[in-house]
Every structure is written in C-alpha cells, then in structure tokens.
C-alpha cells in the first residue's frame, strides 16, 4: 500500500462517514459579533494587567530609569551573560547599555545553544503584543532567531506600544496570509505544576519574562 493510497482511503472513509449525516447540522459557524475597540491607553493598561497576572514583569516609562532597575533584576537572578539576535538593533542597544550595570558579559545565541553553563538573559524585539491575554508574539519572520525567548534563563522582550493589539484575532490575521514557520505566543514565564500541583517557574523556558514597553 503506498502512502498516497492510504491517504485516499482515509479521505474516502471520512467522506462516506460525513455523508451518513446528510446535510443536517454543521454549516459554517457564525462569525464573532462586532465589538467596540478599546482606546490606546486602555489597551496598554489591559496588556499590563494581563501580563502581570500571567507572572510577567513589565517596565513602562523613560529608559534611563528602567536600565538600573532591570540591571538589578538581572543581578538578583544571577545572570552573567547577555545575548540578542545579530540583526536586532534595539535589542543590541539595550543589552550593551546594560553591561555597566552588572558584572555582565555579552555572548551569542550559538554559544548558548552549544550548551554554555552561564546563566543568561536573552533580549529580543517582539513582533506584537496581545492585550486580552497579556501575550508577546515572537516569530521567525524575516529569519530572526527565537533563541533569546527560548533558551535564556531570563527573557527581556522589547515591545513597541504601537504594536499592541487588543485581541488574538488581530494578531493572527496579520500573520495568517503568509505564516512564518514559527509563531510563538509567550505569556509570562515557563511554568509547571506537575509536582504536587505546586507552581514552579523555569521548567524549560525562561523563569522570568520582562517586557519593556517602548
């Protein structure tokens, strides 16, 4: 039996099964009702509230003040090395500006992927934010690496306020026409409650996720 035959047989079985029910039940599902969109500041406030409730950390406001606070968080987390995508100028700028606040050194995604044992912070610009769920969207569009939000112990996501949308639908609609290989929704730190239903962070991904709303 060739694979194509198996496939044809499956489709035939399914076709005959759905045929048994005739035309009853199951027309196109109704579309979502219309909604009144939130104003920009309400949208950003909702994003902040939801991201915090997902266990994230968020900074809004002038960057100079943010840098020292951010540096302190990274030090407390024991971060030694910072990395960012080569082609991400804003992420590079922030990471480089943070070096004096630590003892931090710069490293590369390749090194982290090679299994270097240093505690890391990964910096990256996000493509979008979703207010209803407190989510940052990072994708492989344009070939950009996802490692800073994947392998780092602490992830710092740079989110332009102008790219925060209210609902998931808007974020997906923008991507559905030509989806990149990887669309990742990140809502707070990596979590697990698999041991005695007790929440622990950093199961596989970052144990802390920080959004800089710029």
């Amino acid at each position: 039996m060739t694979p194509t035959d198996e496939r044809e047989l499956l489709l035939r079985r399914v076709r005959s099964a759905v045929g048994k029910h005739g035309a009853e039940a199951g027309g196109a599902a109704p579309a979502e009702g219309a909604r009144n969109p939130l104003a920009e500041d309400e949208r950003l406030d909702l994003f902040e509230r939801m991201f915090l409730s997902a266990g994230g950390v968020i900074f809004r406001g002038p960057m100079e003040k943010v840098m020292s606070d951010l540096g302190e968080i990274l030090r407390t987390e024991g971060v030694a090395a910072l990395f960012f995508p080569e082609d991400d100028a804003s992420a590079r700028e922030i990471a480089e500006a943070l070096v004096p606040f630590g003892p931090f050194h710069l490293t590369t995604g390749a090194e982290v992927r090679g299994g270097s044992p240093a505690v890391t912070a990964g910096f990256r610009s996000a493509e979008a934010g979703i207010a209803e769920t407190g989510t940052v969207v990072e994708t492989s569009a344009g070939g950009r690496t996802l490692l800073p939000g994947l392998l780092a112990d602490v992830h710092v996501s740079l989110l332009p306020a102008s790219s925060v949308v209210e609902r998931m639908d808007e974020a997906l609609a923008a991507l559905a026409a030509g989806p990149p290989r990887n669309i990742s929704f990140l809502s707070g730190p990596s979590k697990s409650a698999d041991i005695e239903q007790t929440l622990a962070v950093g199961a596989h991904g970052p144990r802390k996720v920080i959004v800089l709303l710029v």
Binding site: M50, S53, A54, P85, G109, E132, T133, G134, T135, S140, G142, G143, R144, T145, L146, L147, L175, P179, P180, R181, N182, I183, S184, F185, L186, S187, G188, P189, S190, K191, A193, G205
Partner: peptide, 24 residues
C-alpha cells in the same frame, strides 16, 4: 483546563524552516 487566561506558550508551527531562517 487550569483556570489560566492563556497557557505560557502557544506555538503555531507551519511547514519546515524557511529560506534564511535562523533555526527550525
């Protein structure tokens, strides 16, 4: 499932790594 608004990660995976992608 757990009373969360959204799980920490949603991955939407489409096809193989595309030309120029850093990983995948």
């Amino acid at each position: 499932a757990s009373g969360q608004i959204l799980s920490s990660y949603v991955s939407i995976l489409t096809g193989t790594r595309q030309a120029g992608d850093a990983e995948g």
